[in-house]
Design a protein around this nucleic acid. Structure first.
Lengths: 191, 191
DNA sequence: ACCTGAACACCGTTCAAGT
DNA sequence: ACCTGAACACCGTTCAAGT
């Protein structure tokens, strides 16, 4: 005799997402998720292969949210110059990290097991890559994009982990970095 | 009646360090460490307050190793120009990360619980800070150091997590980043 | 067909009892 | 004074038994 469904994958993912931000990755236990959706832990395995699988699902929904945000920023900025758009994108990424630090951490410093296949991150950084290509020119687009991505993710990681302990103005350091990188990556003007 | 000591803090830390690099942070369990030093898990608590405490000890010895390495590079480079020395330091940090990725990860993307007080990382980056000050000048030393540190740690994090999936030459991207950053941070030559 | 309790193999940690 | 077995409270996960 079939039993009516008492939960759904969507509900499980939503519960996981909430726990992720409120209690960190370690707080996303099968027990805690099961409690939230009103079911016993073993039942979760009907919709999810394992805890790692659930974390991967959380990473996927997070990357989709992030890509949407960055694409919107990129679209809004058509017309303004590329270095300004680069700054807008970097700031949008940083805002996202501030709003959802645990979700951001799942994408950019994942606890090894739940790591997404690296290409999954592609969409979220496509906009960034486009602007950087425009600034640096096609020959050095890849190197320039890697430089910017390394800088912005490194900056955010330091910020989130509290590594900026020498005082000073973190906003100013961010603006400084964007300005200098923008200038440094610009392709030499063709004579 | 006293029992002769069957292990020591040193031996425990050494076992922890070995497990860290062979099995990752998650492999550093109290059981695994106890097995290695030939003792039962509860005995470890005579020398170590908790697993987190042990991880902190591992982070401390790692940061000391790293600081020694960077200081040596800085000392060896006296005389050569600052941008070259900056490259040498960045490459030394990167080599260290390649040799001991798990130890490096413990310092620069720690599993929250074992995080060192941020200022503990100071010594290891003092050399870097010095060279950057020389390049950027005192007024922007802090912002410039943050830019370089963010870039190099971000680059290494991406590399270690396999995020460079678009092909291309990672070495070239690293050299590109160093060269452009070095140029971008240089203080305008006083007229 | 989904849900559950019971069970298993792991954790970190505490503590009374041994020497 | 150090070491140990037993125990506790947690994990993730499996599975036979319920409806």
């Amino acid at each position: 005799m079939p039993t009516p469904d008492r939960t759904s994958l969507d509900e499980i993912v939503r519960a996981g997402r909430d726990l992720l931000e409120s209690d960190g990755v370690d707080g996303v236990t099968m027990r805690a998720v099961a409690d939230r959706v009103g079911v016993r832990p073993p039942s979760l395995y009907k919709r999810v292969r394992s805890r790692d699988d659930l974390l991967r699902l959380l990473a996927e929904t997070t990357v989709a949210d992030l890509a949407g945000r960055l694409d919107a920023v990129a679209a809004a900025g058509s017309g303004v110059d590329a270095v300004t758009r680069l700054g807008d994108l970097a700031r949008a990424l940083r805002s996202f990290a501030h709003e959802r630090p645990a979700g951001y951490g799942l994408l950019f410093s994942p606890p090894s097991a739940a790591r997404l296949p690296p290409e999954t991150l592609g969409p979220s950084t496509a906009a960034l890559f486009g602007v950087v290509s425009e600034i640096a020119g096609p020959d050095e687009a890849l190197e320039a994009a890697r430089t910017v991505t390394a800088w912005v993710t490194g900056f955010i990681a330091m910020e989130l982990s509290g590594s900026f302990q020498l005082g000073g103005d973190v906003e100013r350091a961010f603006d400084f970095g964007i300005a200098r990188l923008g200038a440094a990556l610009a392709r030499p003007v063709a004579g």
